[in-house]
Design a protein around this nucleic acid. Structure first.
Length: 569
RNA sequence: CGGGACGUGGCGCAGCUCGGUAGCGCACCUGCUUUGGGAGCAGGGGGUCGCUGGUUCAAAUCCAGUCGUCCCGACCA
């Protein structure tokens, strides 16, 4: 490709509303342009990177026996109604009505559609199957953000495994896990597999691949010693031991103006946070529920959702709280509360001498004995792990690390095959529902993640695997005939050797060309100019290290072919 | 959905307080000079000032509404 013919609208300044590094650099480098919130056009450079990421994913999926499909992006509502997700998903799904008045959706994922196809698998002898596609998903995100990291329309590699039993699913899950490890390694992403919540997808377990980055949106708990890693939506930690206070008598006491745990710590007759009960009033699919935690702990809403299976979990409004408990936040508690579901964190199990709200404004209880005074319906781990809490395995203080969710794999079980009637005959002639897994990698998000991880103050620093070009030949002065001829000759040699090479033949000043090459992040730059050419040399500069070496005109092509082949991996 | 900010040529911004018919830098076009780290000089093209309505002799500027975008919190590849 010749730069003089390529559309690469580089900018010296990023748009004012770009915040994330990947966003700024992909815009500045002429890779993407925004059409609309959450919808980006891929320009030629952006598409090249996108396709290279997709090619790596495709290669690894093929390597584990995946078969590539391409399913429709638009689906009839019926199939989503069969699985129950037409109602379960809510506003995240784009829905539209066709001319016949029929409901349709733009696919946000494809469990239903692949399972529909899988109805034609009839025998256990055909199993296992791994099916995948790289295809566009549509999700009406409440808040698209950070360039390509979170958008409403994006290419995703989604794959689905079909097995006869759980053991088969475990194997399919494991080969996907390993394939994902290889994919992220090839992309130069230091992804950490972590235990995750499977959320609305359903199923028995899931693993997320998390790339540490401040641009991310998820927190994981990480043990630097034993390697324990889990999304905070699931993470556990050892509980610090608390000695109960010697207060066995339940007593009401006035707490004028007390609204927070901290207030209650300092007021006369109050208690330190570890001796308080935090009462969170939540609404689970319309049912008002009390979630109880130790005063110094925080509620992890996803844990509550996972435990209860509720699809919609939200804090109660002020009116709901007042209506059901008779008091405002700050004076709430579960003592002697009847008729509301009470879910309690194990950190409160067996605790006594506690202090909590009395469900009357400006009054609290002291001397609360959980077992005696609170009608707990269910016990469930509800607390969000905090930094420096001891690892449950080895006791080392946990780190909380902000991450980009680069991939997510799920064990689905038979949720979709049951709903859609996808079953096979087992060796004994019995109908068995297919045991399924589903596995996703967002292609554009991974482009963004690589950009987020690999850049410096001059621009992008693509790993060779995904760089829009592997080599750029910068002709310092195109009016110098010898330079132009040498550049053209090298360009032809590299092209015929299969190197992805860009010839910067623009009639521009050298500084402009150098700056652009660095901005778009081409791993190797060959500078062809009269200075080195006088000695029969060109200069080879590594984008990653900035190191420049002189190489003879006669040997540069072979050296680059060699280098590129080695780094392609 | 709650909170905050912002919409003026492709990008970055000024102008708005105090209404008078739009300006700067980058980018772009032409010419000359220049040519190893974002050149210089001269000339030039491009903007319904997000949209709608209102106030006014007159609106980028004041008022109301509306749409959109971004950021922070609740959601997910």
């Amino acid at each position: 490709m010749r730069w003089s013919n390529l559309f690469v609208p580089t900018l010296r300044e990023p748009p004012a509303d770009a915040e994330a590094a990947n966003h700024k650099l992909l815009i500045r480098g002429g890779f993407i342009r925004q059409l609309h919130s959450g919808h980006y056009s891929l320009l030629p450079l952006g598409l090249r990177v996108h396709e290279k990421v997709a090619a790596i994913v495709r290669r690894e999926m093929d390597a584990i026996g995946g078969q590539e499909f391409l399913l429709p992006a638009m689906h009839p509502a019926e199939v989503w109604k069969k699985s129950g997700r037409w109602h379960a998903v809510g506003e995240e799904m784009f829905r539209l009505v066709d001319r016949k008045g029929a409901d349709n959706v733009l696919g946000m994922t494809h469990e239903e559609i692949f399972t529909d196809v899988a109805q034609e698998i009839t025998s256990y002898r055909s199993l296992p199957q791994i099916w995948y596609q790289i295809q566009w998903k549509f999700r009406d995100e409440p808040r698209p953000k950070s360039g390509l990291l979170r958008v409403r329309e994006f290419a995703m590699k989604d794959s689905y495994s079909f097995d006869i039993d759980e053991a088969g699913l475990d194997r399919s899950f494991d080969v996907h896990h390993d394939a994902y490890v290889r994919i992220f390694a090839a992309l130069g992403l230091p992804a950490i597999p972590v235990e995750a919540s499977s959320g609305a997808m359903g199923g028995s377990g899931s693993t997320e691949f998390m790339v540490p980055s401040s641009a991310g949106e998820d927190d994981i708990a990480l043990c630097g010693n034993c390697g324990y890693a889990a999304n905070v939506e699931r993470a556990k930690a050892r509980l610090s031991v608390v000695e109960d206070r010697d207060l066995s008598e339940l007593a009401r006491f006035p707490t004028p103006g007390v609204r927070t745990i901290a207030d209650l710590e300092t007021i006369e007759g109050g208690a330190s946070a570890v001796h308080q009960i935090k009462t969170m009033v939540m609404v689970l699919d319309g049912e008002v529920t009390l979630a109880l935690l130790r005063g110094d702990h925080e509620l992890e809403i996803q844990k509550l959702a996972d435990f209860t299976g509720a699809a919609d979990v939200r804090p109660a409004t002020a009116q709901e709280t007042l209506q059901h408990l008779g008091a405002n936040p700050g004076s709430l508690g579960a003592v002697h509360v009847d008729g509301l579901r009470v879910v309690c964190d194990p950190a409160l199990e067996g605790r006594r001498g506690l202090t909590t709200g009395a469900n009357e404004d400006d009054w609290h209880w002291s001397g609360v004995d959980i077992a005696r005074d609170v009608a707990v319906d269910e016990w469930a781990d509800l607390r969000r792990v905090q930094a420096d809490e001891p690892c449950q395995n080895c006791g080392t203080p946990l780190e909380i690390v902000r991450c980009i969710e680069a991939g997510h794999i799920f064990k689905l079980g038979t949720k979709y095959s049951d709903a859609l009637g996808a079953s096979v005959l087992d060796p004994n002639g019995n109908q068995k529902p297919l045991v399924m897994g589903s596995y996703g990698i967002g292609i554009g998000r991974n482009v963004a993640a690589v950009a987020e991880i690999h850049h410096d103050d001059k621009g992008l620093l693509w790993p060779l695997n995904v760089a829009p070009f592997e080599v750029v030949i910068t002709i310092v002065n195109t009016k110098d005939d010898a330079s132009a001829a040498a550049g053209e000759s090298l360009y032809n040699d590299l092209r015929s050797a299969g190197v992805d090479v860009l010839l910067d033949d623009r009639d521009a000043r050298a500084g402009v060309k150098f700056a652009d090459a660095e901005l778009i992040g081409v791993p190797y730059r060959v500078t062809v100019g009269p200075r080195a050419l006088a000695d029969g040399d060109v200069e080879l500069t590594s984008r990653a290290t900035g190191d420049t070496t002189r190489v003879g005109v006669d040997s540069i092509a072979a050296l680059l072919v060699d280098t590129v082949n080695r780094e392609r991996g």
